[in-house]
Amino acid sequence: MLKSPLAGLAVLALVAGIFATSFFTFSNESLLINLMAFLALAQGINLLYGFTGYMPFGYVGFFGTGAYGCALTILFLHWNPIAAVVAGGLSAVVLGVILVPLLRLEGAYFGIASLAAAQAAYEIISNPNLTSITQGPYGINLGAVYAPTTGYWTMLGVLLFTTAIAAYFRISRFGLSLMAIRDNSNSAATAGVNVLRGRLIAWLLSCFIGGLAGGAFAWNISFFYPQSVFALTLSIFPIVFAVFGGVGTVIGPLIGAGLLYGLYDAVGVANPEYFQLLYGLLIVALLLFMPGGLVSLAKKVRIHVF
């Protein structure tokens, strides 16, 4: 009855194949890096929103924290960048642990509080008083360890890890129990599910992924300001991608991010406010008219979506 692990392997192979060949055939690497980061973020938001019902507007907080966690371990501890990316993920987990109490809040309140938390993380990291540690508002330079090839494969690794987790949620009984908690936490508890544990695992995994993506991104662009890794658009875009494709599935967020980021790139990044306008309208229209996303259309014609 559960979905087959084969479907998960197929999606992983597809994602790996596409980005591996693109690396050799497609010259615009920074576009690919951004796309992979967005795919991972959309998937990370999907893990939380699609499987547990918490909408993390402040998801960018974990991305930014991961970027800084990675950068600071490179600058101060001189870690190998790949290990530093993992450290970035872990620093986002630390932030996630601090924010665990937010899970007591329901729907809208969680969303708002997570947004405030991301803002707070930004205010702290960019604070001029902390310049000796974080460089404050002046930004980080990782030019000394810049390595486009390994950086690229690391980002792909992050994306594959994320996709694998999503696939695990989709096919496992653990994932089913998360969706049970999402639908009705009381019933889940009286079906024997440890509600707190389930939510914690999903939450911290999602934080970890946000942080990994941030770390890999930081390494790949190698120079950044706090406002560029804490930009709210880094929450908004992936939310739109995930909701547009369809949350609670593995391929929904991937398709959503692929299509919309493609569109974004095709029209050109020169005028971000036009995208803000378009995406704002998309959020409104989607929630009002197609809350299940693209995959809900497939479900209507009884196509099973993985």
Partner: peptide, 17 residues
């Protein structure tokens, strides 16, 4: 019930956990 899960999946959750 778990609204978005099928009847069968509802039972699976309880049987598993």
């Amino acid at each position: 019930p778990f609204h978005k899960l099928t009847v069968w999946e509802n039972m699976i959750v309880a049987a598993t956990y």
